[in-house]
Write a protein that binds this DNA or RNA. Structure first.
Lengths: 225, 225
DNA sequence: TAGATTGTTAATCGATTAACAATC
DNA sequence: TAGATTGTTAATCGATTAACAATC
C-alpha cells in the first residue's frame, strides 16, 4: 500500500475537499456497479443508476464529479471504467494489510468471511490473549499472542487493525498499535476512539446502536394486537 | 411490545417530526448515560456530556428537546431520569421479540453475544435450511427449519427479523416474513431492501461499506515508506 | 444535425451552531 | 438574590436537488 502525501489537486483529477457524506456513498456505488457488471451492462446513465439505488441522478453526478469527470455527455458512464475508478478511490488493489485483535466469535466470523478478500484487504494475523487459542489457525490465518503484537506489526508493516477485543482493553491496545505504526482502526469494541492526529483513521462500528435505531422505528411506527 | 398508533403530540411529550439524524444519536446518548450511571454521577450538564461525546452542547439540548423537556434550568439533566426516558424511546423494556434467519457464523456470533439481551430484544428462534443444524441450540436458542418459519412467526407474534442469510435469498425470505406479520428487519445480507410501506422498518448493515470507507481514508491521508 | 446526458452553477432544503431570554 | 444551565429562536453552515448550458 502506498499513496502520495496530501496531493491537493494533481493534474485535473482529485478536487480539494470531499465531504464524509460523499465518501460514505462510494462503497454503495462500488456494490451497484458490480451488479451491473454481473448483468453484463456496458454503460449506465446517472438516471438509471439513481433508480436502482433509490437516490437522485443529480446526487450521483455531483458525487462522481468530486473526483473528476468519469462520464461522457450524451452517453452516460462506462460501467467498467467507472468501477475501476471507484475501486482505485477505495483502495481495492492497494494491498492494504490488516490484523484482527481478538479471536472471539466476531473476530473469527470476520476472518472466515469473504469480507476482506473481496475488498483487497489482506488479513495477515489474528491476536489473542487466550493461550488455548494461540498457535491455532482460523480461516487460514494464524492466531498469535498479544506479546508479539508490536514486533509483528512493525516487521510486517501492517496498515490497519480490526478491533474485536473487550472494550475495556480497546484504548490501551490501540495505543500500542499506533506506536507500532498502525494508522487505521476498524473498531467493533464499543469504546469510541478519538484521536486528534488526522493521520489516524478510525471507523466506528456500533452494531448495538444500529439495532436500537431499528427498535425506535419499530416502537414509534408500529402497533400490534 | 405495544405502542399507540401514530400519536402525534400526546400531552406535551412527543413533538411532531424527529429527523433520522437525531434518532441515530439516541443510542449514543444511551451508551454515554450508562457510563455516567456506572460512575455514580447523579446529574450532568449538556456541556459535560458534550465534552465526553465530542459533540456540541447545543446539539444535545436541541436533540433532547425533540422529545420534551428532560432537563432543568440551572441544574442540568438528572442522569437516571434521562436514561429512563432514552430507554423508553428506544424500546428497551418494550419486549421486542426477534428471530434470526441464517445460523451461519454471523447469526451464531450475534445470538451468543449480549447484544440483544442488553437492549431488551428477545431472540426467540434461529432458522436455517441446513438439516444438520436444525434441532441444535446456539446461545440457548433453538435452530428451526425454514419450513416452520411462517407458522412460528405468526404464533409467537415475532416483531423483528435479523437477516444473516445469503443475499440471493434475502428478498424472498423478507416477503415471507412480512406476510407472517414481521415489521422490522435488521439486514446484514448486503442485498438492500426497500419497501414503500412506512410500517415496515429496515435497518441496513453493510460492514463491507464501513470497511471500505476506512480504506478510502487510509489511502488518501496516509503514506508509508 | 438532433437527442441524450453529463458537468456545473444556482436554489432549496435541512441540520448544526450560536445566542439569549426564561427559570430553576 | 446571583449563578448556572436549560429551552428555544435565529443565524450559519453544509448537503441535496433543480436547472441548464456544454458537449458528445
Amino acid at each position: 500500500m502506498s499513496s502520495q502525501k496530501q496531493t491537493p489537486l494533481s493534474s485535473e483529477e482529485e478536487k480539494t475537499y470531499v465531504s464524509d457524506a460523499v465518501i460514505r456513498r462510494l462503497p454503495r456505488y462500488f456494490r451497484y456497479l458490480r451488479i451491473l457488471i454481473r448483468e453484463g451492462k456496458m454503460r449506465v446513465s446517472s438516471g438509471e443508476l439513481a433508480d436502482m439505488m433509490h437516490i437522485t441522478a443529480s446526487q450521483i453526478r455531483q458525487d462522481l464529479n468530486c473526483f473528476g469527470g468519469f462520464g461522457q455527455q450524451g452517453y452516460g458512464y462506462n460501467v467498467s471504467f467507472l468501477y475501476a475508478k471507484i475501486c482505485e478511490l477505495l483502495g481495492v488493489g492497494a494491498g492494504i494489510s490488516a490484523v484482527i485483535i481478538g479471536a472471539g466469535d466476531l473476530g473469527r466470523a470476520l476472518v472466515r468471511s469473504s469480507m476482506f478478500t473481496k475488498r483487497g484487504v489482506d488479513i495477515v494475523s489474528l491476536f489473542d490473549v487466550n493461550p488455548s487459542l494461540i498457535g491455532r489457525e482460523v480461516g487460514g490465518v494464524m492466531i498469535r499472542s498479544m506479546t508479539e503484537l508490536e514486533n509483528f506489526c512493525r516487521q510486517t508493516r501492517v496498515d490497519m487493525a480490526v478491533l474485536t477485543l473487550p472494550k475495556d482493553q480497546a484504548e490501551a491496545v490501540a495505543e500500542r498499535l499506533i506506536a507500532a505504526g498502525i494508522r487505521g482502526f476498524w473498531n467493533f469494541t464499543g469504546k469510541e476512539l478519538h484521536y486528534d492526529d488526522p493521520e489516524i483513521a478510525v471507523e466506528e462500528v456500533h452494531l448495538g446502536d444500529s439495532l436500537m435505531s431499528l427498535n425506535y422505528r419499530l416502537c414509534r411506527r408500529n402497533s400490534k394486537e
